[in-house]
Write a protein that binds this DNA or RNA. Sequence first.
DNA 1: GGCATAAGATAACATAGATCATTTTTCTGC
DNA 2: GCAGAAAAATGATCTATGTTATCTTATGCC
Lengths: 243, 243
Amino acid sequence: MLDHPILARMVRKMETRAKLDDSDREALHALRFQERVYEAGAYLVREGELREHCALILEGFAYRQKHTIDGARQIVSFHVAGDFVDLEGALLRRADHSLQMLTRCRIAEIPVATISALVEAHPRVGKALWVDTLIDASIFREWIMNVGRRPARQRLAHLYCELAKRLKLAGLGDESGYRMPITQDQLADATGLTPVHVNRSLKALEIDGLIIRQGRLVVIPDWDLLRECSDFSELYLHLDQTA
Amino acid sequence: MLDHPILARMVRKMETRAKLDDSDREALHALRFQERVYEAGAYLVREGELREHCALILEGFAYRQKHTIDGARQIVSFHVAGDFVDLEGALLRRADHSLQMLTRCRIAEIPVATISALVEAHPRVGKALWVDTLIDASIFREWIMNVGRRPARQRLAHLYCELAKRLKLAGLGDESGYRMPITQDQLADATGLTPVHVNRSLKALEIDGLIIRQGRLVVIPDWDLLRECSDFSELYLHLDQTA
DNA sequence: GGCATAAGATAACATAGATCATTTTTCTGC
DNA sequence: GCAGAAAAATGATCTATGTTATCTTATGCC
């Protein structure tokens, strides 16, 4: 049983999602994983593939995407260090979406069979992972609303708010700003807009003093203002998940 | 242990999602639930509420929705007989969306604590429920893409395709058509469009011979045609989930 | 430290879909 | 079987966002 700092952090996260006992904790700490580095742009899974591993992001950013028959892309989520991605690998046959690295990432890969066995032996761990999926689903719902019912500026502002909260959780920023290398093209594909219009809308947000962009850095001068004008409410992130 | 036909059907569904043994099956059959009828338009849960029950639809249609601060509505999913709704109730504190009846529904309500205990005692049942949530999440992802990247007609056609497949699973129709009382207003809120534009787009679909509407009945004269032109691929429904 | 390439910005113009207003049809309850 | 309400249909007009094209600025690489 390695006492790996990565595992320790992961276990801490799991503990916020379900009550664990000592044997659960031990089982988690005993997890064998393989650490791998993926370059920016590399795929972890592609739509339609069978997966053999579940993956935990140790460092870096990633995103999930789907493609329309005529080549349009929709990004359906962004992921940061500490996020399980591709948990569905453990239980669903084929990937219904692709997972691509936004930046170079360090990834911990755990064989699907290991997760499956873990969950059978440790139902509370299963619960914790289920909660993870439930929260993911909640975020997807919010994205449907974002893309379906909010005007361009609000959509973008909302995404900036979500990222602030989630990066804070990962210890990578807070409501006053953060660093995240998302391209305007990627923002467009995440919000269902056009790169050109993203550009215009971001400019408008900046002129109104809602955000300040400095290269890869986003500064949020007035969190409450941004939150209000983007209709952001953190309820859907279920940050308070203390079982 | 009641040998209720409803439970029998539910157990059959769970078995397609994870391998169960006799004790799992028994535990499921032993589930106590309360059957209630909700009128069309009634709420099962409202955004922000705490929930005490998980719910299974026995009969009727329902949908999940969220509201923008300025009153816009987004429907994020439709549900049919046999669907678990509000499974998140078992593990997440507050509802991040509302659940409203599309038609009068017969609902089986199971206390949250019961589900929670069931899952701890029967990890394979937990897995099955987790798979349920994973599939839900996959459907949400497809909806993000639908709303974000497909033009109006395709969006609607895609929704019709999804409903055909899911209603078939519930034994309520198939690829040649089905009965489902969705209003054009509701279609609009599900696709991120305007009722007026839904009306026009449906008319266009009908003129092109892709669908025929007769009151609450939808007839699909040529499934392959509709499927192709709506960019529908059933992969995301994970219908083949044989553990 | 300059060259190649990707990302960002901007402008002119086009259009899918939104809005608003009105009419027709279809349900639903008595 | 009828009255009232909800849903569907349709027309005229408007606008947020898309498209295409070009230019500028960063970024990373040898």
